[in-house]
């Protein structure tokens, strides 16, 4: 009856602890430390890390960058909206923009080539969710995310929006094609 009564000893801190608890605490602590060190370890030796590179940016400036890229590297247009598809040069900068309710423009990348992907929203929060690989990034308006990405498989990829962004949220898609 003591969980809801005062401890049986005034000086309960000095009551010896059973071996079972001590063993469990030791095991659990080791596991906690392993989990902790996995994160810096992966930064050093793993291939999938979130970059810390980010900038403050205004929609106008960013849109200008996007248009500049489209002007230089557009390869075709898709659909009734004539959404441009851009094939950036190997290792180049890729500017992707989220807005209600579209990922703009579409991209054509090469397998095993590393690009600098820039990502921002010009209105509300959006969620970059690349399928079917399942890479998910938060896209915050006013902030430009810069990541090095290296597609490791050819195919057609879809960007779903997985941050709620209003009534058209579930219609917000984008495309990336990766070529051999």
């Amino acid at each position: 009856m003591t969980s809801f009564m005062p401890p049986a000893q005034k000086n309960w801190w000095n009551v010896p602890v059973g071996r079972q608890e001590i063993v469990w605490i030791a095991i659990a602590l080791v596991w906690c430390l392993i989990m902790f060190f996995m994160m810096p370890y992966w930064h050093m030796y793993g291939g999938q890390n979130i970059s810390n590179e980010g900038y403050r940016v205004t929609p106008v400036k960013y849109q200008a960058k996007v248009n500049e890229m489209i002007g230089k590297y557009k390869v075709r247009e898709v659909g009734a909206m004539k959404t441009p598809v851009v094939a950036p040069p190997d290792g180049g900068d890729v500017y992707l923009m989220a807005r209600l309710w579209q990922w703009y423009p579409m991209l054509e990348l090469k397998k095993d080539v590393t690009y600098r992907l820039h990502l921002t929203s010009i209105d509300w929060n959006h969620g970059f969710s690349l399928q079917p690989v399942n890479i998910n990034l938060q896209v915050v308006p006013g902030y430009e995310f810069v990541l090095s990405v290296t597609p490791n498989k050819a195919g057609e990829y879809t960007i779903v929006c997985n941050e709620y962004c209003g009534i058209g949220h579930h219609t917000m898609l984008g495309k990336i094609w990766v070529k051999e």
């Binding site: 049986a8 000893q9 000086n11 309960w12 801190w13 000095n14």
Partner: peptide
């Protein structure tokens, strides 16, 4: 209560 009257540990005092 005279069950034990050692000094209360600082940890216990914090808690």
């Amino acid at each position: 209560d005279e069950r034990d009257d050692e000094k209360i540990s600082p940890w216990q005092q914090i808690i």
